[in-house]
Design a protein around this nucleic acid. Structure first.
Lengths: 217, 217
DNA sequence: AGATTGCTCCAATGGATATTAGATTGTTAT
DNA sequence: ATAACAATCTAATATCCATTGGAGCAATCT
């Protein structure tokens, strides 16, 4: 019995390594960013609004749990998620949190109450409409993320450039904007801007991680 | 921007609450036990080999993350997982750990190298064979766990009683023994005993959590 | 070559966490 | 009523973790 106890402890300890990686808000934010595509430490630090030292330390932890991999490229170090299972896990832990924690649902409501949302279940019909050209699926993330992975038939206009490039969007059609996922606010802001300018715009709360689209290296 | 940052931090913080619940080996062990069915604090403490005080403290954490619920029953307090999503998450984090951590795969190999295993993919054929009576699916967990939930067509003989109740098993048929899941060693020990006694026995590494069978209250 | 940039390592800090002991509450058994 | 038991709470300790500053290393730019 004592023998199997020792083995058991080893097993749970290993699984807990994954839990430890996922127990810090900053690390979760880094994982979500990496789900959009590979990024350098300094990009990650900027986009997650933390010091490079801190980002580096957290990435070290993630690396220790084998959730991310690194590659040195010139003077940069590029991080990426180890494989799609990591993105799936991010979606899974997030949806368990949403299922169990009222507090989280409240924050989400408060955040997205204004623009209308597209229900996440009509994926197939959205793709169909996008293929036929009945709607414009708009990716408002930075263009490198679009290049790494994007939804089918999506067009890229990063949020910062949207105001200047409005003319590229046909005014008659509905625009469905998406970004990094439900916790990212870029699509919300894009929809707000588009509506002000007279467009018919909706936010799709999902992104590539939720659709199970793996970024290319 | 500062405004959305504050909201973002709230979001990731909430998800991290789930991660924090899953970052301790002991808490993971408690979750796995609770996936077998509801249990009192003192049962949990005994089965996970820790003091009741410690078990109580960890359960308090799990409760804070809303992963478990409690009910007072006489002088006992009964804990149970909040819903099936929790069991699914346990399976998910475990399989990510298995996917990413070589160390974990090594421990598992070392642990189950001896008895032959049933590949986890032939669920349907196993159920078919069990229905026809070609194999005996044997649940070796304590009987209250069997009562709370068990695999289809399974028969219950707890490991402690197996030696005395061997006569209940037909000698011609293959016995497929299972327990709480891949990290539980009861089925392994059962298979070892059965083989010694001349039975044709296999271990099924999965349990009710892996099969998505929710325990009844 | 010297300066700059991107990143990591080391050490130090404060804050959180795991674990145990002691006391306390509520419930059942005698 | 008293004793025994299940469970929790509080307090205390040791340990771990997040974060920051300083130093160092390697690649790039001028």
């Amino acid at each position: 019995m004592n023998d199997s106890r020792r083995i058991k402890d080893l097993l749970y300890e290993q699984v807990a390594r994954i839990g430890k990686a996922a127990c810090s808000p900053k690390r979760l934010e880094l994982i979500e960013l990496l789900c959009q595509g590979e990024k350098t430490v300094d990009t990650l630090a900027r986009e997650a609004a933390m010091s490079m030292k801190l980002a580096s330390a957290h990435l070290r932890e993630l690396r220790g749990a084998r959730l991310v991999e690194t590659e040195k490229r010139g003077k940069y170090v590029v991080y990426r998620i180890a494989n799609r299972a990591v993105a799936d896990f991010w979606v899974a832990i997030r949806s368990l949190a949403e299922d169990r924690l009222v507090e989280l649902r409240l924050v989400i409501e408060q955040m997205v109450s204004h623009p209308k949302e597209l229900a996440p279940q009509d994926r197939d019909s959205l793709v169909k409409m996008a293929r036929k050209g009945d709607v414009v699926v708009l990716d408002v993330r930075p263009s490198d993320e679009f290049l790494a992975a994007h939804l089918p038939f999506a067009r890229s206009i990063p949020l910062d450039e949207l105001k200047l490039r409005l003319s590229e969007l046909p005014k008659g059609k509905t625009v469905v904007a998406y970004c990094r996922g439900p916790y990212c606010l870029m699509a919300r802001d894009a929809v707000e801007l588009l509506r002000k300018k007279g467009y018919d715009a909706l936010r799709l709360p999902e992104g590539v991680a939720e659709w199970g689209i793996a970024p290319v290296r």
